[in-house]
Amino acid sequence: MGKIENLDFKKNSLRKINSFLQNISYKNNKREFTVKNPRGEHAICAGLKENILVKINGHVGYYCGGMNQKAKIVIDGNAGTGLGENMMSGTIHVKGNTSQSTGATAHGGTIIVDGNASSRCGISMKGVDIIVKGSVGHMSGFMAQAGTLLVCGNAGEALGDSIYETVIYIAGNPKSLGVDCIEKKITKNDIKKIENLLKQGNINKLKAINFKKFGSARKLYNFNIDNASDY
């Protein structure tokens, strides 16, 4: 290993490729890498720790870029379940669609999906910013705690169910809202945040005023017997 041409799943194992990318020396001048023939393998680029750029040419499986710190990962294809799960910082950019639980429990950094993200996008997210240029599936933002979910298309059923302090901006419409999720008034501060996210996602077709804001009604924070059926 050590040579860039070996970051090819036809020539090397997942463990070897990941181990190489996880152990890039900070002093190494080389900072850009291309992974070839990913063939939907799971956990590609999980646990990266350095400020490197990894381009993946093809579709990836589950948990791609999980636990990422600092690295920028660009996927020229689709991603499976749990993209960027528990990511701490850095950026993941998917040019296709993503499967369920995109950005689950992620603490920081940014995830950009050019296509659609399916169900439970941003489930239990804890500070990551997720930008989806298409639509998201049902139960997106479920129990989401912090960070921002921006959706340019629509959302499936039960958006933001049992949401905590994540803020959801959506240009289209949610099919329905989950328990304790309500529409909120857009403030000047929100406009600034949305503009910033649109810039990060390189989205020109929409303006900040096109978005609606959803968040927590904060009625489920403490147990209330009147809400028993909602828990």
Binding site: H42, Y62, N97
Partner: peptide, 22 residues
């Protein structure tokens, strides 16, 4: 169940790939 099971099919990377909706 997973994309990797079809990664060997001819020209699959250029196929229309999507998840069946619930």
């Amino acid at each position: 169940s997973e994309f990797q099971a079809m990664a060997h099919l001819p020209n699959v990377n250029k196929a229309k790939i999507y998840e069946p909706e619930p």
